[in-house]
């Protein structure tokens, strides 16, 4: 059951709080991790293939090679995250023994369990989970997620799905704040989450854990757009290391995230970035190939 007073939970949410206002970058090598850190990333996500490659190459996508994770951990001093497959609590336990700082139970990898997500409460390591709407966010929080991110549509370089998910979460949260108790019970029933958690969100007007954006961020302006729509930090997957000048683009995305309200700064850092990742329009991907439905 969701319990804000759980000491271990507070410490998990605490690390998520420290990542706010920052950029978390997908990296596949120690060299990329160093580039990310020097560009100002607040954290790196260690993985074997970035989402665009997973999408292009197909096959089963699993937790990253542990040697790769270890090398990345040694290369930087910022927190290191890693992904496990949805429902794969053994991959998660293995990452925990590796002293990973945050686990992303991610739809980008091939799900291990089509019914259940991991019960995240017994873990000492914090989890982040993706969502498309408020109901999904609250189900993941009930399971113990200490951070929520939008799913967007990973590996596309198309921001439209992250925008859709941020709008869906933000808009419904606003409407909760003016609902009567009867309506809140109705919402809890519809979303299959506890009324206590729904009431917490209605009272706060926001999620009880940090709410980050992910899935399709490719430009500094994309990152700033997410911040304006209520995201408290930004994950960038393929957008950096699939572009022509990763170092410069990484710097620009970090600068635009901190200064998201200052359009002159975003403009200054949007010059001369070279080619962004090519990308693919999310709407053109058949439903069964979209990662967000997982």
């Amino acid at each position: 059951m969701w319990n804000a007073e759980d000491k271990q939970y507070k410490v998990k949410v605490g690390l998520a709080e420290m990542l706010k206002g920052g950029v978390i970058m997908d990296v596949t090598t120690a060299e990329q991790a160093k580039i990310a850190e020097q560009a100002g990333a607040a954290s790196v996500m260690a993985l074997e293939r970035v989402p665009a490659d997973i999408r292009a190459e197909g096959g089963v996508a699993r937790m990253a090679d542990l040697d790769v994770i270890e090398k990345i951990k040694r290369a930087v001093t910022i927190p290191v995250m890693a992904k496990c497959r949805i429902g794969h609590f053994v991959e998660a336990r293995v990452l925990e023994t590796m002293e990973i700082d945050f686990i992303d139970e991610s739809e980008v990898l091939t799900p291990a369990d089509n019914m259940y997500h991991i019960d995240k409460w017994p873990f000492r390591v914090p989890f982040v989970c993706g969502c498309r709407d408020l109901g999904e966010a609250l189900r993941r929080i009930s399971e113990g997620a200490a951070m929520i991110r939008t799913k967007g549509e990973a590996g596309t370089g198309d921001i439209s799905q992250a925008v859709k998910h941020l709008r869906a979460i933000g808009g419904v949260m606003k409407s909760l704040t003016v609902m009567s108790n009867e309506e809140l019970y109705g919402a809890a029933k519809e979303w299959r989450v506890s009324i206590d958690l729904v009431k917490v969100v209605a009272k706060l007007g926001k999620l009880p854990v940090p709410n980050f954006a992910a899935g399709g961020v490719a430009t500094p302006a994309d990152a700033a757009l997410c911040m304006h729509l209520g995201a408290e930090a930004v994950f960038v997957g393929s957008g950096i290391f699939k572009s022509s000048d990763p170092e410069k683009r990484a710097k620009a995305i970090v600068s635009a995230t901190t200064h998201y309200k200052d359009f002159a700064i975003i403009a200054e850092y949007s010059h001369g970035l070279g080619e962004p990742m090519k990308g693919i329009a999310a709407e053109s991907i058949p439903l069964e190939s979209q990662l967000q439905g997982r």
Binding site: E17, M18, L19, K20, G21, G22, E37, Q38, A39, G40, A41, A42, S43, T77, I78, P79, K251, V254, S255, T258, H259
Partner: peptide, 15 residues
């Protein structure tokens, strides 16, 4: 505040 000192340090110089 709390956060990542590496990020803050880099941005202090950049700006």
């Amino acid at each position: 505040p709390g956060g990542e000192s590496t990020t803050m340090d880099i941005m202090i110089d950049r700006f």
